[in-house]
């Protein structure tokens, strides 16, 4: 068990669109690590993030930084310090890059330092600084993903959750984005990464959980998971 946990799920179940998508999931994320959640389509990975961010009703207990999240509305979970990069990015397409980032700082309104993470965002993704005035919909897929991550960083999260950040992105940029995720972790933000690309995810993760039909079927260090015969056979076709 990792010490100094920031996020604890205890026996969490959830239904999504009438299906029981999570069944008794327990997991722990410690401060400063990258935890990958891997599994096939429909394994419940996205529902897991929806459950943590308060978008679906759940049973069981979820606690963040020692405080239970039960009954906390979705927008307050963000303000508590959990940032989400949603599946499919969900940018505001007609707003400029700058306005998308400014909206990220919405949760910190009133705070004079709310635009401070901009420096970090531009250091991680210099391209965004060049495209500030462009509408988000005019960006390439990779740039949109960068903007989605940047927008989530603007909320100043202590835990950043990413839902399939490599989806619909050319391979060259996938590496750049995962490298940025590592840098974000190195800056002290804990990362929970949901990813279908098993190999790439396990390369950057410290630990991993394997989900199958809504249950945790395996967990351990990323190395252990990557070396596991069953995992390799089931997900890598080796």
């Amino acid at each position: 068990m990792p010490h100094d946990p920031i996020l604890i799920l205890d026996n969490v179940s959830a239904s999504y669109r009438g299906l029981r998508a999570l069944q008794g999931v327990s997991m722990t994320v410690a401060k400063g690590e990258i935890v990958a959640v891997v599994g096939a389509n429909g394994a419940g990975k996205s529902t897991l993030l929806k459950a943590i961010s308060g978008q679906v009703a759940t049973e069981g207990a979820i606690s963040f930084d020692g405080k239970p999240l039960a009954g906390v509305p979705g927008h307050m979970i963000t303000r508590a310090g959990i940032g989400l990069v949603p599946e499919g990015r969900r940018l505001f397409p007609r707003l400029s890059v700058e306005d998308n980032l400014r909206l990220g700082a919405y949760a910190r309104r009133g705070d004079p330092n709310r635009f401070k993470p901009l420096d970090l965002v531009f250091t991680l993704f210099p391209r965004l600084a060049e495209r500030l005035a462009q509408r988000a919909e005019t960006l390439s897929g990779g740039e949109q993903q960068m903007l989605a991550i940047g927008r989530a960083l603007m909320t100043q999260p202590r835990l950043l959750m990413l839902d399939e950040p490599s989806q619909g992105i050319m391979p060259k940029l996938v590496d750049a984005i995962l490298a940025a995720v590592v840098r974000i972790r190195d800056l002290g933000v804990t990362v929970l990464l949901v990813e279908q690309r098993l190999v790439e995810a396990l390369e950057i993760a410290d630990r991993a959980y394997v989900l199958q039909t809504g249950r945790v079927v395996m967990h351990g260090t990323a190395k252990e998971i990557a070396a596991n015969e069953d995992v390799r056979r089931a997900y890598l076709g080796m």
Partner: peptide
Amino acid sequence: FAWRAVKDDVVAARSLGVNI
């Protein structure tokens, strides 16, 4: 800003701390 976010994408708006 909050309204434009709500109009465009409720899920994204909520994930940024907007009280819909």
